[in-house]
């Protein structure tokens, strides 16, 4: 594994990002707008539901951006090269799949941290919710778990794009939103109907959001929930990597990979 090659891909993504208004919109403006909208909503709700629930909703929405950003960074980052007909050039260089994915994961984590930082500042100064009240250690544990899940989800989507082509590219920015209601980002799992609760508990982020909500009330680490999130994440990542490798190899066998660029 070469750090220089990982750095090259990160540099490549930085160059694209700084020249693409739509990317800046997707990774900075849109997430921050979501936080601001939910900030006003929680201000409004705090009158009827109380301050705790309002804080839980806003913190859930801020943490959600970690999954969103990591997933977006990897899946859409790759699509920029498909659209530019540059993906072949990258994959015929001596870069390995692992180096490529690590580069985009680091880049996704950096973007998530930026959103988390600005989201935290906005929520603190404008809506009176301090993200640091969760505790630094808790925050790091939540971040790692959510970024793990975002990474796993992104490589599943990438696997699908490599295998079935750009016909399914919309999944890279759309499918994660379908799972959002199941992950109980801004409400407790108990709100969901029973069958959906069972599905919700199969998803690692559900435990993170549950732990974060509990954290708003009590600052202790919710070990049971956190360990469950880590456990499910490891299974999920293992399955996601296996799926990605299978789809990538299938894509090269069927010739779809070479046809990706049209």
């Amino acid at each position: 594994m070469s750090w220089k090659r990982i750095k090259a891909i990160m540099l490549h993504e930085f160059f694209i990002t700084k020249r693409s208004l739509e990317v800046i919109n997707d990774i900075i403006i849109f997430p921050l707008l979501s936080i601001i909208i939910f900030g006003f909503l929680t201000n409004y709700l705090s009158g009827t539901t109380g301050l705790i629930i309002s804080k839980q909703v806003l913190i859930g929405m801020i943490l959600w951006q970690v999954i969103n950003m990591t997933e977006y960074s990897i899946a859409v980052g790759c699509l920029w090269d498909v659209w530019a007909r540059n993906l072949t050039n990258i994959f015929i260089s001596p870069i390995s799949n692992l180096e490529y994915l690590i580069a985009y994961t680091i880049s996704g984590c950096v973007k998530s941290l930026i959103v988390l930082l600005f989201g935290g500042i906005i929520s603190f100064y404008f809506f009176g919710t301090n993200l640091l009240d969760l505790g630094i250690i808790n925050l790091i544990i939540y971040f790692v778990n959510l970024a793990f899940f975002g990474f796993g989800f992104a490589i599943v989507i990438l696997g699908l794009i490599f295998r079935f082509g750009t016909n399914v590219q919309a999944l890279s920015w759309g499918l994660i939103a379908v799972l959002q209601p199941l992950m109980a980002v801004i409400y407790p799992v108990s709100i969901l109907p029973k069958p959906l609760q069972m599905m919700a508990y199969l998803l690692p982020p559900t435990y993170v959001f549950e732990a974060a909500r509990a954290n708003v009330i009590d600052k202790g680490i919710q070990w049971q929930l956190i360990l469950m999130a880590f456990f499910l994440n490891f299974i999920f990542i293992f399955l996601a990597i296996t799926f990605f490798n299978f789809m990538f190899n299938q894509s090269k066998k069927t010739g779809q990979f070479a046809r990706l660029e049209g």
Binding site: H12, F15, R19, N86, S93, E261
Partner: peptide, 23 residues
């Protein structure tokens, strides 16, 4: 002729990325 480099970035940016990819 059927492949291209990344259109949004400059010639220098494209080349420096590939130079690093090839170490």
């Amino acid at each position: 002729a059927f492949n291209a480099l990344q259109g949004r970035t400059t010639v220098w940016e494209n080349l420096i990325v590939f130079a690093n990819l090839y170490l």
